[in-house]
């Protein structure tokens, strides 16, 4: 069984689980993810490996409660177990000494950027990180990111922490000041990743983004996670999840991510109503 060793609330609706998963911890690399199932009727939920501890045999998952499955996940407690947990999936981030690497994390995307920033730092890069969120209450991993970055910039929409503005602002400024940047890694909402791509495109600064299309198996079997990258269709779960930001069809990605919204709402309502009446939707 896959036991929850530790549970923390990082921000409203953002939770951290440290999971007992020795086999996954042994292999996990920055950039990879897992797929979990909560119970027999549950869907397969992909989450990035935000951290791993090979000694302890654990991995850390950080998730935002956005719909029925992540909300149900959030109700689990230390000592509870997940029915299924598989990984590590996807290709690891390509880490080497590039020179100067800018790591951009937005919202929940800061979690997956963290192990990458740490890896880049360990490989000898100068790591400049930019993290952002709507406001300071929901900004996660500031301390962790500080520890693995040479410089840390913070941006919030309302200016409650760091600069008031977007994560692209410090990036634009750096470029304007003539800072030599060898690689940008950006993870966060699709709009943010697209904006970062547009900022770096004119300067041809290599830019990598981590895509999160809707997935089922995560092993390359269904093709549901396909994204168009430079006129080619790629399966994000096995060919990615990281791709060259300048080649990604972000509009296509957004459209596909929205495919099930009415059904997701229906499921959430169904779960809410059945759970009140004694939880028929999920067996415990």
């Amino acid at each position: 069984m896959y036991k929850i060793l530790l549970k923390q609330e990082l921000a409203p609706n953002v939770k951290l689980f440290k999971m007992q998963a020795p086999l996954i911890a042994k292999k996990a690399q920055p950039g990879q993810f897992v797929i979990l199932r909560i119970d027999e009727d549950g869907e397969r939920v992909p989450l990035t490996i935000a951290d791993f501890d090979r000694e302890e045999g654990s991995i850390t998952l950080i998730f935002q409660e956005v719909g029925a499955s992540t909300k149900l996940l959030g109700t689990l407690n230390e000592g509870d177990s997940l029915l299924d947990l598989v990984g590590p999936l996807g290709k690891p981030t390509h880490i080497e000494n590039f020179g100067t690497v800018v790591c951009v994390g937005g919202g929940i995307g800061i979690a997956p950027v963290y192990p990458i920033a740490r890896g880049m730092k360990a490989a000898g890069n100068e790591v400049i990180s930019i993290i952002g969120a709507r406001n300071k209450e929901i900004l996660i991993y500031e301390e962790e990111m500080t520890a693995v970055s040479d410089t840390l910039h913070i941006a919030t929409d309302d200016g409650s922490k760091g600069i008031k503005g977007f994560v692209t602002d410090p990036l634009k400024q750096m470029i304007a000041e003539g800072k030599k940047i060898d690689l940008v890694v950006a993870i966060g909402p699709v709009i943010m990743m697209r904006n970062v791509a547009e900022v770096t495109r004119p300067y041809q600064i290599p830019t990598v983004v981590s895509l999160n299309p809707i997935m089922v198996d995560g092993t390359g079997m269904c093709g549901g996670c396909r994204v168009s990258v430079g006129e080619e269709n790629k399966f994000a779960c096995v060919d990615g999840p990281e791709f060259d930001a300048h080649k990604v069809d972000f509009a296509g990605l957004v459209a596909r991510q929205r495919m099930y919204i009415p059904k997701e709402k229906q499921y959430a309502e169904h779960c809410a109503s059945t759970r009140e009446g004694g939880c028929k939707c999920h067996s415990h």
Binding site: E43, V216, M221, C222, G223, A255, Q266, K280
Partner: peptide, 28 residues
């Protein structure tokens, strides 16, 4: 890549493995 275009694998996996025919009692 339009929405509503499936591989047979995905369509059948959602139905058979993930039991989407019982949605919304199941989550997929």
């Amino acid at each position: 890549n339009f929405n509503g275009v499936y591989s047979a694998n995905e369509f059948l996996t959602r139905c058979n493995l993930m039991k989407a025919y019982r949605f919304p009692d199941t989550g997929t």
